[in-house]
Amino acid sequence: MIELKSVTKRFGSETAVDAISLTVERGELCALVGTSGCGKSTTLRMINRLIEHDGGEIHIEGRPIREFDGRLLRRRIGYAIQSTGLFPHWTVARNIGLVPRLLKWPAARVAERVEELMLLLGLPVEQFAAKYPAQLSGGQAQRVGVARALAADPDILLMDEPFGALDPITREGLQAELRDLQARLQKTIVFVTHDMDEALALADRLVVMNAGRIVQQGGPLELLRAPADDFVASLLGGDDRGLKAAAITRVGERMLPLATRPMPPARVSREATLHQALAVMFREHAERLAVVDGDDQPVGEISLRRIVGAGREGGGEP
């Protein structure tokens, strides 16, 4: 668990981070979102003491981070950044094994761990272990960066726009992988991004920052339904945010149980989002869709009214 209590950071006369308080629960993926220069990266880097905070307190597992030696603290916290920061003169395997070696693990255990991680991140060992970073594609380099951050099995992972430099398709693929990874590993992750869609897709909780302050925090749907002010609303895409909410709500959450009347011919998966269901309706010129499970067996149905109503039901908007 990470706790920030009215943490402040000043650079000269400028206040980069202004008395922010934030708690990230164990196993939670918390996204810091905001425009560039809003203080989100600074906040992240104060957590592993790459930058020292000027005021307030930061606790990790209940202990103030000033009690730890900065270097030892950083070896316990995974760290992945946008430019990957892979050492160009080291092979992939050596890059991944960096922190375990800093922690003086025995060589055999380091090697074992490196293989394990490469497997975990879909990097075949015999193909990639001996390659140098310059020989990797952007997506592959970023996987290595994540593997390196996970190497010493840290409880906490800090990620600073790790997918920022990638093309949309590669980025979406890696986001999906990170979601799977998080479902399995249950790390405490603080994730900095300026891409609201990325934050909505990945985070359990979003923290929107502006000019060094936290403007709003909450779950994705909470934010979409009730943005605190115009700034948050515009970050969320203005009028588009209804569609964004539809994009993170599953059909299964909104469907009606099987009825006796005849099933509509067009179908959609229970796991699809409302956004995808809408797309199917457009394509099929249908106002009702049959909802099917993984085995293509009907489990319910969903109508246009149900989808459109979804925004209203749980929200606080009049």
């Binding site: 030892l72 950083r74 050492f87």
Partner: peptide, 14 residues
């Protein structure tokens, strides 16, 4: 590359 140095420090190298 500043990214490399940032990463090196972020990993806890002295």
């Amino acid at each position: 590359d500043p990214g490399v140095l940032e990463a090196a420090r972020g990993m806890g190298m002295s």
